[in-house]
Nucleic acid binder design. Structure first.
Lengths: 265, 265
DNA sequence: CAGTGGTCTAGACCACCAA
DNA sequence: TGGTGGTCTAGACCACTGT
């Protein structure tokens, strides 16, 4: 970024060209955690309006390359964290490192039309909903709403305090023999409470993962998880693949490198 | 949207409030394919600058609720298409409905440092790369670069024309007994050629899926796929889950409904 | 051609943070 | 308090679309 940033007259928009220039600078002249010059200076240096510069920064932030902090500055982001979303590794309550999840609250209420349809139950049927937050490296990385029809948990003890009920629901769920899950992943934005739980402003991009858990041919749970898209990379592992040794290196070792192939090559 | 759009003094930004108002209008007063009033009229109606209105529309477009077409207008988007990304259903070359993929080109070249690391092979080793485009309902929904070390395809016939070579690589790949795959999904933006293949402007959000295929303990292929985030919802099915009948409805039937649970309950 | 969204500008003020 | 990013404005011009 030593140049004064000449922006030749090109057919592509200025902000896109700017993004490219900045991206190269990030890759070659900066490292994680460093702060970029402030927006007013950058826009002056490149001879564009601040709004145009910000459009370029918006792109780079969406790509997870920058983090902007009000009052602080614009920093180079750390590479995205690979977050395993396999039930047997992380997702299912109580399994192994389940400390990663922190229960926020738990409600028991009749299903709305929407929820009933998604769970394949009658509208108004009782459903337990556990909201949780997933912590990765001490950071809130995801929120989840876990919906479980009361009918799927026949042995649930009677009324309890909210935190106890949440525990009970999760424990009962563990005992079911879940024999399959089907998932969907799409792009979304964090709204009010969700955004607050993720410690991000409303409108922040998230990866929305919808998981249906089946046991004995029945749909026993529906989880809707929202992962911070800026810092997360969802990884779907298969037990069969991990730990084998390919031509040169273990498959696991290549996992990190694989995601970087797309850029520049 | 009958009101003149009073924007009370609220702690939240105008564009976010606007988004909420527009979202409700979209849900209640418009249907797929309808065109919204133009930006200048909308901004006047809500008493904000056009740039502010556009910020709200940007959000709704990111959520896949709107489609903006230059020269035409802003339309209500169709619900996202669920795209199966299971190897046995769609992903693997030649399997079942493989007509869905159209080969763009095929190159054979020494691996760059980056690619070599991701494939676990030596830098400079020969790698076949097949670029394909995935068609869903006649639309280009994804691009893919499939990297295969030449060493993994010992029986590949000698030199051929490009299109023939692509076919050969895919066919050889089918014959391998792939016994596992591991995936990662993250948010990205479409760059130049990629954007062109997806028929979207540069900078459009995409879901980047990185898949490693293993056979006999070796990493035999690396696929980097970019799916249009505006119109795609990636679905990961499991053979075990589909076609069972839960309490009220088949699991499959609930798949579409599940994704809508997040909004408004 | 007239109408649409896409880009860009120059400036203002606000909310937040560190010192 | 001074500096940062976040929001908002009013206006201009461009690129693309259909008639």
């Amino acid at each position: 970024m030593g140049t004064t940033g000449q922006l030749a007259a090109v057919p592509e928009p200025k902000y896109w060209h700017l993004r490219t220039v900045l991206l190269r600078a990030i890759d070659t002249e900066f490292s994680t955690g460093q702060v970029l010059p402030n927006e007013r200076e950058l826009s002056a240096r490149f001879g564009v309006a601040r709004a145009t510069l910000r459009q370029a920064l918006d792109q780079l932030e969406l790509e997870g390359r920058l983090v902007r902090r009000r009052g602080i500055g614009t920093l180079i982001a750390a590479p995205r964290v690979g977050v395993p979303v396999n039930r047997h590794e992380e997702g299912w309550p109580g399994t192994a490192r389940s400390q990663a999840w922190r229960t926020v609250d738990c409600t028991t209420a009749p299903a709305t039309a929407r929820l009933a349809k998604a769970l394949g139950i009658a509208e108004g049927a009782t459903v337990h909903t556990v909201r949780r937050v997933r912590l990765v490296q001490g950071q809130n990385m995801a929120t989840e709403s876990l919906h479980v029809p009361a009918a799927a948990l026949p042995h649930l003890p009677g009324f309890r305090a909210e935190s106890d009920r949440a525990r009970s629901v999760l424990r009962q769920l563990e005992r079911l023999e879940v024999d399959g899950e089907s998932r969907a992943v799409e792009l979304g934005v964090a709204e009010a409470e969700e955004a607050a739980l993720l410690e991000r402003p409303p409108g922040s991009p998230v990866l929305v993962m919808t998981t249906q858990y089946a046991a004995a041919g029945r749909l026993v749970a529906l989880a809707v998880s929202t992962y911070r898209a800026d810092t997360c990379k969802l990884t779907f592992g298969e037990a069969g693949v991990v730990e084998v040794t390919p031509v040169g290196a273990p498959v696991g070792a290549a996992t990190g490198a694989a995601a970087e192939v797309r850029t520049a090559s």
